[in-house]
Design a protein around this nucleic acid. Structure first.
Lengths: 236, 236
DNA sequence: CGGCTAAACTGGTATTACCAGTAGGGTGAT
DNA sequence: ATCACCCTACTGGTAATACCAGTTTAGCCG
């Protein structure tokens, strides 16, 4: 009655995934050829290719004709690509769940960035802030991308690569929300700009607690607007 | 130079995804049979099955032998499955980095659990606490697993499936740390037990701020111990 | 009319063959 | 000896066919 059959393709898929997870097939290395896997696992090439297709869909491997398939170094944006689809199907529930995670991550990145940021981070943050300032009143579409870059730069400033990776994973969600929330809404952009400046100021001034508080206010502000507007149900 | 070929399977995959997105094939409905898609898109059945495999990997459809494949709701547990993969594909990371993420997540789960926990959650938490109490003075190895279960239960109590998923993604490293930290160290276990009780008490008593603070203290306590032992900087 | 069976679906797997890129080794010219 | 070239033996990508194993359904028979 369920769908949990012992399908050969799925089994192979899991096996390969395990080999990746356990580091037997390191990132960037080439996995055995399809014909090799066929004889190794005693399955047909179809089964092998179906397993590889699943891995491809998850971004775990990348393939190109003539060359061996290789383990992808990292593709957190595969996850982010799913967000628009999920949002259009699930709407508010998903939105709130993701938002809560984002708040958990970013209130911490703001804090840690204020503690760990390097001089180079400060330069980057200031540059993005300036770019954002210009685009906010000129190119809205572009400013959404820069906005995301700003948040990711803060995550990088924690000096912990896992934070930008996590944020990147939900970046599809972030931009999706931004697009709906801010398109043709200069007032909201102005408000957001003010928060960005405050957050940057706190991080540069090594004031972690203030950075955290301002980041939370900033995110909650956007979230409230979204929930009220009911725009998250729109298709894209 | 990249891998963005016009692969028939990928094209079909996108087409089907579009049909889902646009609501042409609603959630729960059966998609055309593989043979139908074969003649409809003028591709071989292999190509069709590879496209469907990709959709399966993303959780967009579910298949079972003899029955038509159906569109399944693409909700956040897809992300739940992808987070662990993402973490394992992340390459070099230290226990310290993992810990920082854990702190970000768990200080939030403690808070949200105190807000959103159900009556059933309270029962579960109390049960795990009691199990922990017994094992702490009897079976250390087992208590580490129960410890993790306790933390995951708190994440579940947020009513947001993404939190337990994230915690699960980093649980492999978490337990490793616990083992190193507490093996044959009854005093530390006693201390941890006290924190567990306090956290549970705050969650049950709907005191989010206290739950958060206590959780942070608890985690930092373990972390400090790890820092002293020098194992914290290790790669994993 | 009701119950059972058999045919006509469905997805799952295997085999074979060929196309289309890539890389490596050998051969030729310089 | 060295370099350029090409040919061969790989690689993944696609197709056609056949069969297995479940599910559904239509029709037969009582």
């Amino acid at each position: 009655m369920g769908n949990n059959q012992n399908l050969a393709a799925k089994v192979l898929f899991e096996k390969i995934l395990d080999n990746i997870r356990l580091g037997i097939w390191p990132i960037g290395s080439a996995i055995p050829s399809e014909r090799t896997l066929v004889s190794e696992f005693n399955v047909s090439r179809i089964t092998v290719r179906e397993a590889l297709s699943m891995l491809k869909a998850l971004g775990a491997i990348s393939t190109s004709q003539g060359k061996r398939s290789v383990i992808s170094p990292l593709d957190s944006n595969i996850i982010s690509r799913l967000f628009p689809l999920m949002m259009s199907l699930q709407g508010e529930k998903t939105y709130e769940q993701i938002f809560e995670v984002r708040l958990a991550i970013e209130s911490r990145t703001a804090y840690l960035a204020a503690v760990n940021r390097t001089e180079d981070d400060i330069v980057q943050i200031k540059a993005l802030l300036e770019k954002l300032r210009i685009e906010t009143s000129a190119n809205i579409e572009q400013s959404i991308e820069t906005d995301l870059q700003f948040h990711i730069q803060i995550a990088k400033s924690t000096q912990n690569p896992l934070f930008p990776a996590l944020l990147n994973a939900i970046s599809g969600f972030v931009t999706y929300v931004q697009v709906l929330s801010c398109r043709g809404n200069p007032v909201k952009r102005k408000r957001a700009m003010h928060f960005h400046e405050t957050i940057a100021d706190a991080i540069i001034g090594s004031d972690p607690e203030r950075a955290r508080v301002e980041m939370e206010s900033h995110l909650r502000g956007s979230a409230d607007k979204m929930l009220k507007s009911g725009m998250f149900k729109k298709k894209c």
